[in-house]
Simulated assay, not measured.
Amino acid sequence: MALVTGAGSGIGRAIAHRLGAGGARVICTDIDLDGAQSIAGEIEEAGGSALAFRMDISCETSVRDTVAGALAETGHLNAVAANAGIMVEGDLLSLSLDDWNRAMAVNATGAFLTARATLPYLIESGGGSLVFTASTVALSGMKGVAAYSASKGAVAALTRQIAADYASRGIRVNAVAPGAVRTPLSESQFRARADTDAEVEALLTAVIQRYPISRWGMPEDIAALVAFLLGRDSGWITGQIIPVDGGLLETR
């Protein structure tokens, strides 16, 4: 049994598809219930098994009650992809406190709440794997994303800490750190900065010129690594923050 947060779109959707295709029964959660139901339906149509639930990862009650309710129906849990998150742009002097708090509430506190709600079930199942979605900005600075960078840095630190605390209980904890991934969210951010489709494409092209593998990452690129880290073949890997970034961090 696997649980995926932010399963309604982008990377989370690709993770849910990948796990479902691999034979896992997938609990698809998202703050957008329609999105969660859509991906659950796609998994079922492809011959897999999935359930959909609305969950706001920034709300303690929502996370606790949704996880408990889902697992009351499904039983044991052995894999969690804590993927849900938001982008908040702005450098330190342009950010409001509300911007900062929103990034921390969803990305950092959301990761904490998801882990705290699911760990008891992973332990009860005899062990399992938890994978967070961090970001390359957790490992290296980038202009104009102070709150996002700090919140994803917290996810990276939390990954290592939980891995240290719970390895003896059979729990492995890792994080993927994506570079630029082409999702509806990333495209919407570029569309907000441009007036025409041609300007959007120019901005998108400018981003990947920095990448040795000169293309945008796709959600499926991230999902493949998440599925590996959640599975048995990665049984001696824990506490790692693994970039999936077309070579950006190691070559720039």
Rank of each mutant, 00 (worst) to 15 (best):
P120R: 12
A157K: 05
L71T: 07
A82Y: 13
A164K: 00
R102W: 10
A105L: 10
T133L: 08
L113V: 03
V63Y: 06
V63H: 02
N101Q: 15
Q161W: 00
F112M: 07
G179C: 11
I123M: 14
T183N: 14
P120I: 04
A180F: 13
T133C: 12
V137H: 01
W100G: 02
S62Q: 14
V173C: 15
A175P: 10
S125I: 01
A81Y: 09
L93I: 10
V137A: 03
Q189D: 09
G85M: 08
A103N: 10
L185K: 15
K152D: 05
Y166F: 15
Q161D: 02
T66G: 09
Q161P: 01
T74L: 02
A111K: 03
K152Y: 12
A147K: 02
L92K: 09
S62M: 08
M142R: 09
S151W: 01
F112K: 04
A103W: 12
K152N: 09
N174S: 14
L113S: 06
G75Y: 09
A138L: 04
N107L: 14
A150H: 10
A154E: 01
T159Y: 01
S149P: 02
D99F: 06
G170Q: 04
A154I: 00
T136F: 03
S129L: 03
A194L: 05
G85S: 07
L185D: 10
S151I: 00
R172P: 11
R182N: 13
E73Q: 09
T74E: 12
V181D: 13
V176L: 05
I171C: 01
A84H: 04
G170I: 03
W100S: 03
T133F: 01
V67Q: 05
T66W: 00
R193L: 15
W100I: 02
T159I: 08
D91M: 10
L77A: 08
P120F: 06
T109A: 03
S129R: 04
A154L: 06
V176P: 15
T136G: 05
T114N: 03
N83W: 07
A194I: 02
Y148Q: 02
L139A: 08
S94L: 08
V80C: 07
A164M: 00
P120M: 06
G144M: 13
A175R: 10
G179K: 06
L139N: 04
Y166D: 10
V145N: 05
A146M: 12
A154D: 11
G90W: 00
I171S: 00
V181Q: 12
